[in-house]
Every structure is written in structure tokens, then in C-alpha cells.
Design a protein around this nucleic acid. Sequence first.
DNA 1: ATAAATTTTTAGACAAATCTAAATTATAAT
DNA 2: ATTATAATTTAGATTTGTCTAAAAATTTAT
Lengths: 242, 242
Amino acid sequence: MFTPLFYVYLLNDTQDIFYRFKMLSYTEENYLKIIFSLSYPNSLEITTNDIAKKLEINPASVSDMLKKLNQKKLIDYAKYQGVRLTNEGKKIAIEIVRKHRLWETFLVDKLNFSWDEVHDVAEQLEHIQSSLLIERLYKFLDCPKFDPHGEPIPDEHGEFPVTENLICLNSCKNQQKIQVKSITDDSSALLQYLSKISVSIGVSIEICDKNSYDNSIDVIINENKNVTLSKEISEKIYGVLL
Amino acid sequence: MFTPLFYVYLLNDTQDIFYRFKMLSYTEENYLKIIFSLSYPNSLEITTNDIAKKLEINPASVSDMLKKLNQKKLIDYAKYQGVRLTNEGKKIAIEIVRKHRLWETFLVDKLNFSWDEVHDVAEQLEHIQSSLLIERLYKFLDCPKFDPHGEPIPDEHGEFPVTENLICLNSCKNQQKIQVKSITDDSSALLQYLSKISVSIGVSIEICDKNSYDNSIDVIINENKNVTLSKEISEKIYGVLL
DNA sequence: ATAAATTTTTAGACAAATCTAAATTATAAT
DNA sequence: ATTATAATTTAGATTTGTCTAAAAATTTAT
Ligand SMILES: [Mn+2]
Ligand SMILES: [Mn+2]
Ligand SMILES: [Mn+2]
Ligand SMILES: [Mn+2]
């Protein structure tokens, strides 16, 4: 339940002459980001429950927020009909993704974080409001195109870098071999495990055998390490065929 | 008006084994920081109105929050009696000051911000929760002792660097000359003005004349620039006698 | 096509942080 | 020592984002 709605026009940076059209809360930003990442790369229709699960909150709360974001014209939403970002909502979501991935890159490249330590901090840093900051950070990092997990970083205009056609390890056939290009889940448990078994961006993985019972696969990592990967893990690993 | 109170025990970083004793909100952190800076360096008693003015909110709101912080044992507060930080409250406040000043240093030293552009961004960054982040940032910046405005940065144990005895430009006599060591106000309007008249950390300022009517002073900056400084400005400038 | 299960929305409540208006306490002025 | 003024606190309301329980709509299964 919520009632009115009004737009707040505020200075972004005191130093900036520009005004932000809509000052969004930390929470609203997170909703937009989640909707974007659930629908990426095809702007799929997302359900209330999808969002509730991802944010680990009650679907009732999501319904309320969707109404609000719809009024702000950041999403297209009609009761029971699912939700889709508007162009404006998508633009904001991409900005947040950009900030998240730039901060992760900063933490790894400059502060020597390991790839499993960065996500939670970036979840906070992505909400810092300063266009100057993100512009300068981008240059400081030499305009990176991919984050520490191989995920693409949109440029200042919201354009994602063009990438080779990635295929999921999970969808490879026996004897096929890929070079790892990205991990599509930043959870520290997964990333720590991958480090343990020597999987990182750039290594090769060859499929030896597929077990149809649990959809696990036997693989050779970097030509020298035999490991069995569960479906949950293999579907998070993407790369190019070698 | 507020009701209950309970402590939330939460992981600080997912990577950390340590627990934070009290998870404070952004707002609570700001109250502690303000109380600290208003009472620094002598732990003076601070009034409700002081805080309300600084935060630009209603004194009634401050009263509520003081009750809450008192219950959390972060301040010593009794109705109508003013407020003082407890040791625990002071420790947290110093941590926030540390983070603020380290971020300002980062922005100037690494991202080429000017000294008048950093404060507002640091107000946001100081609330990022990650002990690993601040430890790494500190080392990345080579353990700086002073921020871009010459303000001391507490070390990892909350100890401020020992400094030469600073005197306020405002309290100098005619013909005295100081070297600027710190500016005790980070507002961009002041800092931009100081840049315009070539005042920065390290420059010399010699007092030529004091105007008893409005307490303005005529000074020579770096031996070559005559300027008249208002009381509001001269009382923000500190340095050592030359 | 109807019933059962699932998803989504509404209704009503609550906690945090703020506000305004009114009451209370403290301080300053006569 | 009263009175006037200023500072502070209480009372009650509001906004945001959440919750639980119940109602409504949609989807799935029979
Ligand atoms: Mn991440
Ligand atoms: Mn990532
Ligand atoms: Mn500052
Ligand atoms: Mn500063």
C-alpha cells in the first residue's frame, strides 16, 4: 500500500550543472537492475515472483513497487501481465550495471581483491551518485570492456561491447573444447569453487563425458585436470569453441 | 516517535569471518559523525539544536534519534542535558571520518578531482561497509596522514596523526606569517574561492592589516598577492607560524 | 469444462526517519 | 522573583519499503 507520488528534481553533483530527472532510491535502482538482468539480453517479460525470489522479499512487496515504477514510467506493467523495462528504465538499469562492473574491475585491478570478494561491495558502490566519479573511474581503469567475471561493461552511452558468440559449457557436446570467457553468476561460493578447480577466464575446458542422469559433465581443465561439474555449475560457464 | 529497539548481528563482508556488533543505518552513522565533528577535538557537550542545524532537519527529529542512539549506548544523553559520544560511539564516528578522508584522498590523488569536488561524493562513499575495502584503499594510497584539505586521517586503530600546533589565521597578529596547513570546511563554494585567490595547502599568508569593524584582514598570499579576507574565511584557515 | 494449484494483488499493519504543532523545560531579561 | 524568550521534547501524522493474511486472477490438471 502506498499513496501519492511526486518527482524530486535534485542536483546530481553539486559541481554539475546538470539535473537528474528522477532521483531514484537505492531500492528502486535495485528493482530496475534486477528486472534488467532477468530479461537480458532479450527484453523478456518478467514476473512478480521472479523479482521476489531474486530480491528475497515477499511478492506482495514487489506488486507495490511495480505499481510505483510503472507510474514513474520506468517499467511497463499491468496487473497480472508481467513487467518490462521502458527505454528510460532500461537506460537507468544499464547505468547501474555499468557502475557495478566498473567497481568490480577497480577492486580486482587496483585493490587486489580476488574475483569472489568483489560482488557484495560492488552492490553497495553501484548506488553512489556522481557522474564525474564514474567517468573518471572509467578512464582510470583504461576503459575496460569486461569485468573480472568476463561480463561486458557498457560504455558511457550504454552500449555493450560486441562479443564473440558465447556458448554455454552446459550445451557443448562430447570432445568439444571451449576457452572460458565469462561466468554468469558472481556468488562467492561459486567463484571460490571455480578458483579451487583452476577455472578462470581464459582457461580451456574439454568435455569428456556427459552423464544424462544428473546432467553433470566430466571435463579436462587446461589440458591437465579432470573434474566432474554439476549442471548448476556448467550452466554458469560460457566461452568460445576452440 | 519510535518504539522498540533490537540489535542486528550481520556479516560485514561475506568474505569476512568477523561480525559487526551493531549494524547502523546510513542515518545513524551521520548523526555520530556530526556529533563527533561538532565536539572535536575536546569532547564537548553538543546540543540538539547544533545537530539539527548541521543536518538541516527539525530539532524534534533529532530528539527522537538521540533517544535511540542513547539506548544503543553510542551516546550519553539525558533530556535537556546535551549529548556526548560514548567510547563505542566515538570509535564508530572516527571510522567514518577515516573513510570520508581516505575517499577524498583517493578522488584527488587517483581520479584527478579538484579539492572542491570531493566532499559530496565522499559523503556517500563513507557509508560503504567493507573493512577489506578500506584497508586496501588505505594501502593503495600509501597510508596517507592528511586529506586534500589538510585534515588528519586516523589510522586503522583510530589514532590521529600527531600534528604541529596549528593556529587559526583569524587569530594571527599584524606582520605574522603562516604556512597554510588545513582548511576546516569542505564546502565547494569556499574551496573554489580559495583556489581562485591561490590559497592552497602549503602556501604562505602574511597578515598586513586587521579591520576591527568587520574583522576582515588584509593579507599577502605567497609573497605576491594582496587580498582582503572576511572573518568567515580567515577563521577556516589554519597553519603554522613562519 | 471444471476443479485444483499457483501466481498475483489487495488490505491492513509496522519500523524508520522525518515533519508540524503544541507542551514542557531552561535561560535571559526585567 | 516573575516574566519573556529560546531550546527541547512530546504527540500525532506522513512517506517508504517491507511484512502477513486473505482475496482474486491465472494457469494447470483432470
Ligand atoms: Mn557482481
Ligand atoms: Mn561481475
Ligand atoms: Mn569532506
Ligand atoms: Mn576533507
